Simulated assay, not measured.
Amino acid sequence: MSAIKSYFKEEGQLSMLGLECSKPSCFYLSVWQRNRSSTPLFIWRSLLFLTSLGILLSSMIMYGLMGKFGFWFIYLTHWGLTLNTVATAMSAVVSARCYFFGPIGAEFALPWYVKSYWVFYNSAVPIAFLITVFYWTILYEAGFEEELNHGLDVAVHGLNSLVMFLLLVSASHPSRLLHIYHPMIFGLTYAVFGAVYYLAGGVDANGNPWIYPVINWSQPGSTMAMVAITGVLLIALHLAVVGLAAIRDAIATRVIRRSVITHIEEGMPLRSQTQTIT
């Protein structure tokens, strides 16, 4: 009980709202590694990025072939796919930077590209989970099929979360409670976009005066209720991500004995000297 209390006391500090971390290596080394090589995570993140990019391009091309390319940009799912792609791209950029130029020092603040990746990661993971849960529990049951191909529909609303889950479990950087404002800002931005789009006379790909049938701004009462419910779900999913990260770290510490690796390793060369736990 004291450990839980201590955790919330530490995570609840206002300083946790920021984007600083005393151990930069956690952004380019996996929690499952026994050495300090940046290569494994660089390769893994590159594969995740290519998967996200492939799903994104497949969806866009399908809309283009159907002559509905402009409507691709109005759906939350596609905003989420874009966010996934940027997050995985930034993760690969961070790993590539360390692979080619060496480790990130701990003496100064985190570089902008690491902070950017962290923000995109904080937003992309719970948003991907939200899109999957929202689609298969509400929209699909209502007979709404967002993609123009059923197989792609499954990939867009399933593989998106799998990719983000794999990014989560392979990382080692923290997921902080107070970073909830990152996905919330993204979600609020889309909600405002949906309202403005409706007021501007926007329609969906089939000519309906809404983007999603369950979020119809011509019925503001039920729509606001749905937006509120979605917001609560997003908060719950962010907490789930924080919990998954904690479970990941706990299992890795027991299996890999990562606690043996200390902060002394920050700044040591990544290739010329490999430290393996024995």
Rank of each mutant, 00 (worst) to 15 (best):
P126W: 01
T88D: 09
T77A: 03
N35L: 09
T223H: 08
T189Y: 01
S52H: 13
P24R: 05
I277H: 07
L168M: 14
S123P: 06
F69N: 05
M60K: 13
A200Y: 06
G105P: 04
P209G: 06
A96G: 11
V163Q: 05
S218H: 11
L244Y: 01
Y140M: 04
F100W: 03
W72D: 10
L41F: 12
W112H: 00
G64F: 11
E20M: 04
E141I: 15
L237N: 08
S15G: 15
L233F: 08
E20N: 07
S272V: 04
Y197C: 01
F134Q: 14
A228T: 12
F8R: 00
S123W: 04
K115L: 00
C98M: 08
L159Y: 06
F186W: 10
T223P: 02
L237I: 14
S15H: 08
A155Q: 02
R248N: 11
L139R: 06
M226D: 02
M226Q: 11
L178I: 00
T253C: 13
M66L: 08
A191V: 09
G194I: 03
Q273N: 10
K68C: 05
Y117S: 04
Q275P: 02
T39D: 11
T85M: 15
H238W: 06
I43W: 03
L159I: 12
Y140T: 03
H150A: 13
M224Y: 13
E107V: 06
L50A: 11
L50F: 12
A236D: 00
T230K: 08
A191C: 09
T262R: 07
W79A: 12
F73N: 10
A195W: 14
L29I: 12
N206H: 13
A228V: 10
R257D: 13
L148Y: 01
F186T: 12
L19T: 00
I180H: 02
F27Y: 10
P183K: 03
L65Q: 11
E10H: 15
G187N: 06
F101K: 05
I55P: 00
S59M: 06
T88L: 07
N208W: 10
T82Q: 09
V119G: 05
H263W: 14
N206T: 13
R271W: 11
Y7F: 07
C26L: 14
I247T: 15
E146H: 09
V156R: 13
E265I: 12
Q273W: 05
G80V: 12
